[in-house]
């Protein structure tokens, strides 16, 4: 498995380009199918237009055990709207086609992929122009079959590390991953927080000691100030719930929702350049 940055991958190239500009990359998350499939595609495009280098398209799940109230609400809206895996793959395809400059990842709990078929999902995601996957409830020990399929289709597999991960464990996880390492800033579920934990900087340093992969920080980051702070010690800043919140707050006014997420992406993009 890729132990070093996969130089050939689109994701690695984008992160390397941000590094060459002496800034952190901005990675934005929104669930697919939220608030509708087409509305979700427009919102994710707006994230990129606002300044996200990489987007994560969430695959809504009935049991989002790692998500806080904001993303749970969005997943619920998407699922009640009838979103299917094929809709999420179409979202990836439309966003990747509209924005070939960005890398499009899928973030999903494991069971939908397992049910869809590991090889089939990897093939269909690659065919849609996806760059890789983040699978937060698939630990390295259970990931061999997925990584084989992902490798075959040139997809990156981004693993999550947590403040509770001990150093030998970090080495195991980073050795298995590719693209970047997702460092969880705090112990907890997704959601905006007033402070990015001091744990994050320590975790990034400990992770870097084990790998040449870029290390990006997520969980709790919602403002330009926090993005700038994280950009001071990490290779990328990941923001999810703050975007979801903007869309929820806009209610039925899609234009307002798109303006709000585009503006937030712009603020955050300025933040990651203020390191």
């Amino acid at each position: 498995m890729a132990n070093k940055p996969n130089e050939a991958s689109k994701l690695s190239g984008i992160l390397a380009a941000a590094k060459a500009e002496n800034r952190a990359a901005l990675i934005g998350y929104l669930p697919g199918g939220f608030p509708t499939v087409d509305g979700g595609i427009r919102a994710i495009n707006a994230l990129i237009e606002g300044g996200c280098d990489v987007v994560e398209v969430g695959l809504p799940h009935s049991d989002p055990v790692l998500d806080g109230a904001v993303i749970q609400t969005a997943d619920d809206i998407a699922l009640r709207g009838g979103v299917r895996i094929k809709d999420v793959l179409r979202t990836v395809q439309e966003v990747a086609t509209a924005h070939p400059e960005a890398a499009v990842l899928v973030m999903t709990y494991w069971n939908p992929v397992d049910r869809y078929g590991t090889a089939r999902f990897a093939a269909d995601l690659a065919a849609a122009g996806g760059a890789g996957c983040i699978l937060p409830d698939l630990p390295v020990e259970e990931s061999e079959e997925w990584r084989k399929a992902a490798d075959e289709h040139g997809l990156d597999t981004v693993f999550v590390v947590a403040p509770s991960s001990k150093d030998p464990r970090l080495a195991e996880v980073t050795a298995a991953g590719s693209g970047f390492v997702y460092a969880a800033a705090v112990m907890g579920v997704t959601g905006t927080r007033n402070q990015v934990g001091s744990l994050a900087e320590d975790l990034v340093a400990r992770t870097r000691a084990t790998t040449d992969l870029p290390v990006c920080v997520g969980l709790g980051v919602s403002t330009a100030e926090q993005a700038a702070e994280v950009a001071g010690f990490a290779d990328g800043v990941i923001v999810g719930s703050a975007f979801v919140k903007r869309i929820l707050e806009a209610g039925d006014d899609e234009a307002a929702a798109l303006d709000a997420v585009r503006a937030l992406a712009g603020d955050l993009a300025a933040g990651v350049r203020r390191r």
């Binding site: 055990v65 630990p139 259970e142 693993f159 999550v160 590390v161 509770s164 996880v173 112990m187």
Partner: peptide, 12 residues
């Protein structure tokens, strides 16, 4: 069986 858990819970 197995262990399909987030990294944050692996140590625990």
């Amino acid at each position: 069986g197995g262990r399909f858990i987030p990294e944050a819970l692996v140590a625990a």
